[in-house]
Design a protein around this nucleic acid. Sequence first.
RNA 1: GGCGGAGUGGCGGAAUGGUAGACGCAUCCGACUCAAAAUCGGACGCCGAGAGGCGUGUGGGUUCGAGUCCCACCUCCGCUACCA
Length: 859
Amino acid sequence: MATQCKDYDFTAIEAHWQDQWAQEKTFKAIDGDTQRPKYYVMEMYPYPSGAGLHAGHAENFTGGDVIARYKWATGHNVLHPMGWDAFGLPAEQYAVKTGQHPRVTTQRNVATFTRQLNKLGLAIDWDREINTTDEIYYKWTQWIFLQLYKHGLAYVSEQPVNWCPELGTVLANEEVIDGKSEVGGHPVVRKNLRQWVLRITAYAEKLLQGLEKLDWPESSKKQQAHWIGRSTGAQVVFDIEEQDAKIEVYTTRPDTLFGVTYMVLSPEHKLVQQLTTGDQRELVDAYIEAAAKKSDLERTELAKIKTGVFTGSYAINPVNGKRVPIWIADYVLASYGTGAIMAVPAQDERDWDFAETYDLPIVRTVQPPEDFTGKAYTGDGPCINSDFLNGLQIAEAKEAMIKWLEQHQRGEAQVNYRLRDWLFSRQRYWGEPFPIVFVDEAAYRKARELGGVVARDMPEETVSYEDGGQTYYALPIPAEQLPLVLPRTENYKPSGTGESPLSKVTEWVDVWFNLETGETVSRTETQPAGDAWVPASRETNTMPQWAGSCWYYLRYLDPKNTEQLIAPEIRDYWGSVDFYMGGTEHVTLHLLYARFWHQFLVDIGVLKEPEPFLRLYHQGIILGEDGEKMSKSRGNVVNPDDYIQEFGADALRAYLMFMGPLDDMKPWKTDGIKGVFRFLQKVWNEFAGRDGAVNSKVQDEGEEQKDTLKLLHETIKKVGDDMEHQRFNTALSQMMIFMNHVAKAETVQASTARAFVQLLAPICPHISEELWQRLGGEGTVAKAQWPKYDAALLESAEVKIGLLINGKPRGEAMVAKDATQAQVLEQAKADPKVAPHLEGKTVRKVIYVPGKILNVVAN
RNA sequence: GGCGGAGUGGCGGAAUGGUAGACGCAUCCGACUCAAAAUCGGACGCCGAGAGGCGUGUGGGUUCGAGUCCCACCUCCGCUACCA
């Protein structure tokens, strides 16, 4: 049913059709529909912040929506879902500030977002809505963690971490930018804390290999590959003079081993104390203390001047027996390789800088070219000063050296990755609790002996930690006992000590734990009867925000399943995500983590497809009207709601798609939306008319005019091609050209109008549904079969071609499509605008491209 | 420093090696109007009265023909950054 509107009352029309779609469940994806090909398209789900929907969201969701609608129209069974990434810091920080519980603010924000998204007219299957903070959802987040734990991919580690005093939490490396927190920009320092860590490095190779087959932007693949950072080289063992210890280093340049003039340990290296001699002790201790206090910002920003101190000890170079001094310096990272390096200043810029500062010797082992004027030489060349390597090029020398090291048992070839294990715990309230309890050693042993479901979900290798002389052993809360519900407490403020707020909820933390069944009872109750019940303490850290987003694309497939993460037949039907749209900023975080979990789930038999996201697409950032990044402080923020109210969702959607290529960064121009609004107004006026259901120029009987028909088919072709390649801006241009023609035509056939409205529907669905109805279309335009163009109609008997003399355009001519070169040349010679340019010249050559140009070369 | 992307009218942007500037915005002229808005018609790269000349960051090259291909350079943006 269409509305009764006379004018283009977009508010009424849009509300009407949005209701209609919701009621009819027009965009419900059907599990197991074998009649139509499936298509799974999704956008990165939003974090429901208090600020509401912004322009970037609108662009992201509209872009995905146009694709979804186009796929429906071309006969696909489309899955286009939506959900909420609702755990995370901002809700908790807001709670701390205002005293409102995160659950309350989250619910409120989700309601706001839902209302805003609906106003955009998105073709979403809302029956599959998910929320990462729902128990039914995070039960499975916990379940996946449990599987990771069981398979030895989750461990506890006391390690220096990025501690942000302001936020009262630890951050992942990826959440620290220039030594400041990504959220809020607060300073970050190092602190040792007990943490859960996921062994993503075990998947480094697989994650790298998997990239090859993905249809992702090349730059994103490169970025991820760089993040994984595979390098090949050798591990080399250095003896230490008059000491029992050995230093292991990793190097990508084993060929330069003869050029080692000193060694450097990171200040955190475990051998530092042992290697420091009495007279150096004071200096070394002071240096270590200073390095520990430095924030990451200081450590990187002050990197221009490298600092370090001598430990007093010497290492012995395994290839030539030379003694080289061992230094410590914070330009060597504890977390990469072995935390120690062999320094070869002649072939490494960093080492050169350091050697220069501290007056350490430099020995070239690669002959630089004669014209080389720089300091460290990192290019190729023949080896020198290198004994048995002399004369070899770098690649050969590396091989020879590795062979030598292996023969003499002083090292071996090694592959290294830049990727670090993933720091997976947060000292926060608003996240998924870990399905873990800690018990003493006796209880731990007993759990294994009992062989219940607890033992079943235990990893082979014991996970434990020490604190105050006591060892705590981790035991899983087995799958049967999930979800482990986040306790409803008002104690969500950060403790400030680095402990999670949950640690203060003692009635939740301290439990009786059944070592066989994994059941728990608060220790405020009396101990249940039976040997299997022991006192235990829950893990009080929570999971990071990334956890829920690692697998949400799977939950959309089977959102209400309480028995399985996903039913196999549903998994097999939908497979992987065909089109995933979101910002580039998630390439090294979310997209890598999600691939890791996905590959893991494949390995344990839960999933089959090797990769989660086959096609990745990044929408470009929308800048403010001033060409600057939108921000509250600049006051250039565009609120989509304002424009929906003033021009309608269709106009907003059309403008967002018309601004320029979807993946380009581009500035918002309010005047621009007026242009597309005029276009929609024109569509309405031409087809609906100003004062009736249909404009009187729309004809039901008779034939379409030739030129209109030709243009229509050109438009069908152009829009279809553009839709396939996400070129929505040029698709709209073509539709504007078409409407400009219709506006000038005396009449137009209803069938023509309907076909046009179909083309418009993916981008402007509301006005299209309305006009489709009025023009006599059947059912919803969203699912009407996409028009086909007739190639024969695209041809015309006469074509316009350009007449060029010596490559310069001098005129144009209408000629028969199959005109010969001679005919066209005649016409050119006779053309009053062209002829003067040929006067007195001899024609040397003629190039004729039928339908395009005739170029006469003359002098 | 490394990786990636981009430089086209006043602006957003179009152009399988084939008449650069489609489409839209802004501006100007005209019609309608008492007037304005809306709408419609027209103009709109730069220089030039005109013929014409010059024009896609700069310099070279390939080609009958280059925004598009090749080489060198300049500028801007994004990401990343002591990873040995």
